[in-house]
């Protein structure tokens, strides 16, 4: 019971990490997806390169590079900012792929019709393609949220005092590993269920007849 306040502190860091990196990741993801689909050869190869490298390496390595590696070139980040940056950069690459799947599932007639109205490319993307692609991506986005929620725990390894870290400290003091980590597991499970339900609600509210989820987007484990 005494451990509750510090667990709550940890929980708030966990939620902070989750939501901020999801949001920054979305911005990065939109930019990367658009660059990959609509950019010229150079831009699209840069985007592909970024996406592949991030998806091809462990999050933990990325966090280590940011937190332990960058100081040697003079860039010193606090654990929290390194974690925020790493999770955002990482999530951006995955979100880009989900979004690309959605963009490519939109019939080409949508772009053509926008252009015949006199919209330029950018206007067409902004008004016609993206609003549809973002809606189609909501299930993938919900998946990504749950993924991030769980993987923020890795920030513990670079000394961020999020939920798992707080649990570990208490457990190490009290030697009650099982009790503490069962409590922590239950908190994560409850959050997963709660957040999934909230996103489902949002999805229902934003749903538009005839616009469904893109199929065959390979999601990461959430």
């Amino acid at each position: 019971m005494d451990s509750l306040p510090s667990l709550l502190d940890g929980l708030s860091i966990t939620l902070l990490l989750t939501f901020i990196s999801l949001t920054i990741g979305l911005v990065i993801g939109v930019a990367l997806a658009l660059g990959r689909v609509y950019g010229n050869k150079i831009i699209s190869s840069v985007c592909i390169g970024y996406i592949e490298v991030i998806r091809g390496t462990p999050l933990l390595v990325q966090l280590f590079i940011l937190y332990f590696g960058l100081p040697s070139v003079g860039i010193i980040l606090t654990p929290l900012s390194a974690a925020l940056l790493g999770l955002s950069l990482n999530s951006g690459a995955y979100q880009a792929e989900y979004l690309r799947g959605s963009i490519q599932s939109i019939p080409s007639g949508q772009m053509i019709a926008a252009r015949t109205l006199g919209m330029n490319r950018l206007q067409s993307i902004q008004n016609i393609i993206l609003p549809q692609a973002l809606r189609i991506s909501i299930p993938a986005w919900s998946n990504e949220l749950i993924y991030l929620l769980k993987y923020t725990s890795i920030a513990y390894i670079i000394q961020v005092r999020e939920l798992t870290a707080e649990g570990k400290f208490i457990a190490a003091d009290t030697f009650r590993f099982i009790e503490i980590f069962v409590i922590i597991a239950v908190i994560y499970l409850a959050l997963t269920v709660l957040l999934t339900a909230i996103i489902d609600k949002i999805e229902k509210r934003l749903s538009i007849p005839g616009i469904g989820a893109a199929e065959s987007i390979a999601l990461r484990n959430a």
Partner: peptide, 29 residues
């Protein structure tokens, strides 16, 4: 893009904007 405003186009497969109501389909341009 300026010229295309003067040239309407009606498609065989409609190509209505799927995320917009009929009203917004017409007003968005």
């Amino acid at each position: 893009n300026k010229i295309r405003q003067k040239i309407g186009f009606v498609f065989q497969e409609f190509n209505l904007f799927n995320h917009l109501t009929a009203l917004r389909n017409v007003s968005i341009g």
